[in-house]
Computed example of a mutant assay.
Amino acid sequence: MIPERNLMEACDINNKLHRKWVADITDMLEEGPGVVLRLEKIRKAIVGSPEPMLWYSKKRMELEMLYLESLKRTAEFRDVNDMLNNSDFVLNSIRFRLEEILIEVRQRTIQEGCSVHDLECISNAMLM
């Protein structure tokens, strides 16, 4: 924690409120990603229409796995001059599938009203 940004000190709160904040923050940290479900709008979106969230989650998982595999294969197949041998069939197949997934996500998001068309932006958003 950065001492200059200590909101608890700056607000001059009492001990009871301080303990409650510490307990709440500790609970949230222990809960991990599930803490997002505490946000009402996100919880309603997930409960109201789980199919888009499930579809996106599957696409993201596939994208992550393919991206990691491409990084691994790229590192394995560099030659002595640190040049990549582009004749690797598997690596080319992985790249092709990565692009297919991104195009599929772009098409679906456009249908749902999103205006992002750049595949690199979509890739960055999904892998962040």
Rank of each mutant, 00 (worst) to 15 (best):
1 M>T: 09
1 M>P: 12
1 M>K: 10
4 E>A: 14
11 C>Y: 09
11 C>G: 13
14 N>H: 15
14 N>A: 15
16 K>N: 06
18 H>D: 13
19 R>W: 04
19 R>V: 05
19 R>T: 04
25 I>R: 10
26 T>A: 14
32 G>I: 04
32 G>N: 07
35 V>C: 00
35 V>K: 03
36 V>Q: 08
38 R>Y: 01
39 L>M: 06
43 R>N: 09
45 A>C: 05
47 V>M: 12
48 G>A: 05
49 S>Q: 02
51 E>Y: 00
53 M>D: 00
55 W>N: 13
56 Y>S: 09
58 K>N: 13
67 Y>H: 12
67 Y>M: 07
78 R>A: 01
81 N>Q: 04
81 N>L: 07
81 N>T: 05
82 D>N: 10
87 S>F: 01
88 D>P: 01
89 F>M: 09
90 V>L: 06
93 S>A: 13
94 I>E: 00
94 I>G: 03
99 E>N: 14
105 V>S: 07
105 V>I: 12
106 R>D: 13
108 R>P: 01
109 T>A: 14
112 E>K: 12
112 E>M: 11
113 G>A: 09
114 C>T: 02
115 S>R: 05
117 H>E: 15
117 H>M: 11
120 E>D: 15
121 C>E: 15
121 C>G: 12
127 L>Y: 03
128 M>S: 14
